[in-house]
Computed example of a mutant assay.
Amino acid sequence: MGTQNLSAPACAQPLNPRGITHINSKHTTRFTVVGNHLTQHRRLSLTAIGLACHIQSLPSGARVDIKTLAARFPEGETRVAAALRELETHGYLARIRERLPSGRFVTYTVSYNQPRADQSVPPVQPVQPVHRVQSGAQVPAAHPADQAPPPSPQQSASRDPAGDAAGDEPRAATVGEPGTSPPSAPPA
Results as ranks from 00 to 15, higher is better:
Pro122His: 03
Ala162Tyr: 13
Gly136Cys: 08
Asp146Glu: 15
Ala137Glu: 15
Thr89His: 13
Gly163Phe: 03
His143Ser: 13
Val139Leu: 15
Gly163Tyr: 07
Arg97Tyr: 07
Pro122Ala: 08
Pro122Phe: 01
Val106Pro: 00
Val130Tyr: 07
Asp118Thr: 05
Gly167Arg: 09
Pro149Tyr: 03
Gln138Leu: 15
Arg97Glu: 09
Gly103Met: 06
Pro161Phe: 04
Ala157Gln: 15
Gly91Tyr: 02
Tyr92Trp: 15
Val139Ser: 02
Gln138Asn: 10
Ala137Gly: 08
Ser111Asp: 06
Ser156Thr: 15
Val127Trp: 01
Pro123Gln: 07
Ala141Met: 06
Val127Cys: 06
Ser135Cys: 14
Ser152Phe: 05
Val130Arg: 12
Gln147Leu: 00
Asp118Leu: 05
Ser120Pro: 00
Asp168Ala: 12
Asn113Gln: 07
Phe105Thr: 06
Val110Lys: 00
Val139His: 09
Gln114Tyr: 12
Tyr108Gly: 02
Pro149Cys: 02
Pro144Met: 08
Ala162Arg: 15
Tyr108Met: 05
Pro144Ile: 06
Thr89Gln: 12
Glu169Leu: 14
Arg159Met: 05
Ser102Gly: 02
Gln114Leu: 13
Ser102His: 03
Tyr108Gln: 05
Gly136Val: 09
Arg95Glu: 03
Ala145Asp: 04
Glu88Ser: 10
His90Asp: 14
Val127Ala: 12
Asp160Glu: 12
Pro151Asn: 04
Gly103Val: 08
Ala145Phe: 00
Gln154Thr: 11
Ala157Cys: 03
Glu88Lys: 05
Arg95Lys: 10
Ser135Gln: 09
His131Leu: 13
Ala165Gly: 13
Thr109Val: 15
Ser102Val: 05
His90Met: 05
Gly103Asp: 04
Ile96Cys: 03
Gln119Trp: 10
Ala141Arg: 01
Ala142Lys: 11
Ala162His: 13
Pro129Val: 04
Pro126Gly: 01
His143Trp: 10
Leu100Val: 04
Ser120Trp: 10
Gly163Thr: 07
Ala165Asn: 06
Gln114Ile: 12
Ser158Gln: 11
Gln134Arg: 15
Pro144Lys: 09
Asp164Ala: 13
Pro150Lys: 01
Pro122Ser: 03
Ser152Gly: 11
Ala165Glu: 09
Gly163His: 03
Gly167Val: 08
Pro144His: 09
Asp160Phe: 09
Arg97Gly: 06
Ala157Ser: 13
Arg132His: 13
Arg97Asp: 10
Pro123Arg: 08
Glu98Lys: 09
Val130Thr: 13
His143Arg: 12
Val127Tyr: 01
Val106Asn: 00
Val133Leu: 14
Val110Cys: 07
Gln147Thr: 00
